[in-house]
Design a protein around this nucleic acid. Structure first.
Length: 426
RNA sequence: GGAGAGGUGGCAGAGUGGUUUAACGCGCCGGUCUUGAAAACCGGAGUGCCGCAAGGUACCGGGGGUUCGAAUCCCUCCCUCUCCGCCA
């Protein structure tokens, strides 16, 4: 949510920012008008409330002296009814304004390249080189099915398409990667591990920006609970409606499964692990001093990259353009892994600075020099599974169909260095 | 799921219709005193909104209602605690 005071005082700046994002000014216009109305109404109704309070107190004093107050009471009855009506008007205007405000995206940071879609994103750096193969590299589906790592047909029967079932070493690899990444962030990057609920209430979904706009992409349960689309939601909401009373930054990391309906996305990449409705992810979340948030963003990207470096994977970092960043982000880096079987880059991490956008929605504040103000929030995938598994299988594949694992994973795989077909094992 | 008791400022805890602009205490901040500290004493201290300001207004778990006036009465929802039932 943008600051209404910023909109009020620097409307032109806000207008320009939204234009760079390619967002229409319709919501902004409505907010500006509603704000004007609201202030006029509030000023007037508060005068009336003051009158009501003063006279009510008088009535109490007069009654104590045994005097007649019927006239004043009648007058106040009428005044109160007027106030009730105006209060309702204020609430109406406020609700309309808030709904519009909640639908306005964050303003893009000045450092973003201009552009309307992914084609304008900038490659910031590339790490490693694509693996050379003496044979035509296979796709992860073929590799994994031969090795018995997952079973899509049965998963589709029990649940539906896009819900993977991992089996044997496939399931073990999933667990190993989660542990490896959590350990790395805790031991080397200074994060505190948390394990949050996998469903959250509506207010939390609004707090991080998934609602009201993206409801169609979410799984909605009974009791108005929502399956988390990312750990960002429960973890950021840990401090919702709080004035944080501890030193910043606060750095938290969490594993959660992520549930996404991706409504409308069907038809593309429907096979395999690349686009699924449920995947595992380790997420990093930071609550920081506003002055430091862009430095923290760079650190965050580096920490996500560290995961991939230690796994020896070929990746590149993209700076997203003004038209391609997510709704709540002011600046965002994506990290993509090279998948030789797909002959394509796969997004496995998105590291964003939301500035105060989420903090304002979720009301997360801290005290600074006696004043209360919003913190800045950031988060980044560190990193997302499923696609990471795709890259590991496709990069590590051997001519005989087995897969060599990165050294860093071996301790987490109980000493296993190579994924082999069950019938080949002793 | 059933029965009961509760939810008040950082903590603890009074307040059951109008001198409450929420008491007292602890903790916190500033000051006096002291070589320094403690103690004692004095003072300060919530959050949002409207307003250039003075000031006003709202908030006692959330929402609604009764009343001239609600922390206080009524309805409803949420949460916590105790007991019972069920259960990994």
């Amino acid at each position: 949510m943008l600051d209404i005071k910023l909109i009020r005082d620097q409307e032109a700046v806000v207008r320009e920012g939204l234009a760079r994002r390619g967002h229409s000014a319709e919501n902004l216009d409505a907010v500006v008008e509603a704000d004007r109305q609201r202030r006029a109404l509030v000023t007037e109704v508060e005068k009336l409330k003051n009158q009501l309070n003063v006279v009510s107190k008088e009535i109490g004093q007069l009654k104590a002296k045994g005097q007649d107050t019927a006239d004043k009471q009648q007058a106040m009855r009428e005044l109160r009814d007027r106030i009730t009506g105006m209060d309702a008007q204020v609430r109406e205007v406020e609700a309309a304004m808030r709904e519009r405000l909640l639908s306005i995206p964050n303003l893009p940071h000045a450092s973003l390249p201009a552009g309307t879609d992914a084609s304008a994103n900038q490659v910031v750096r590339t790490q490693g080189m694509p693996c050379e193969f003496a044979f035509k590299p296979k796709g992860h589906v073929e590799i994994g099915e031969k090795l018995g790592l997952f079973d899509f047909p049965r998963a589709a029967r029990m649940t539906g398409a896009g819900f993977p079932l991992y089996v044997g070493l496939g399931a073990r690899l999933e667990r190993a990667l989660i542990s490896f990444m959590l350990d790395l962030h805790v031991a080397e990057h200074g994060y505190t591990e948390v394990s949050p609920p996998f469903v959250v209430n509506r207010a939390s979904m609004v707090g991080t920006g998934q609602l009201p706009k993206m409801a169609e992409d979410m799984y909605h349960c009974t009791d108005d609970l929502w399956l988390v689309p990312t750990a960002e939601v429960p973890v950021t909401n840990i401090y919702r409606d709080e004035i944080i009373d501890q030193p910043l930054p606060i750095c938290l990391t969490a594993y959660t499964p992520c549930f996404r309906r991706e409504a409308g996305a069907a038809g593309k990449e429907t096979r395999g692990l690349i686009r699924v409705h449920q995947f595992d992810k380790v997420e990093m979340v930071k609550f920081v001093e506003p002055a430091t948030s862009y430095d923290e963003l760079e650190t965050l990207v580096g920490q996500a990259e560290d995961v991939l470096k230690r796994l020896g994977l070929h990746y590149r970092v993209l700076l997203l353009c003004s038209g391609d960043i997510s709704f709540a982000a002011a600046k965002c880096y994506d990290i993509e892994l090279w998948a030789p079987g797909q002959n394509a880059w796969l997004e496995v991490s998105s590291c964003s600075n939301f500035e105060a956008f989420q903090a304002r929605r979720a009301n997360i504040r801290r005290r600074k020099d006696g004043k209360v103000d919003f913190v800045h929030t950031l988060n980044g995938s560190g990193v997302a599974l499923a696609r990471l598994v795709v890259a590991l299988l496709e990069n590590g594949q051997e001519a005989d169909g087995s897969v060599t694992l990165p050294e860093a994973l071996v301790p987490y795989m109980g000493g296993i260095r190579r994924l082999e077909a069950p019938d080949k094992k002793a």
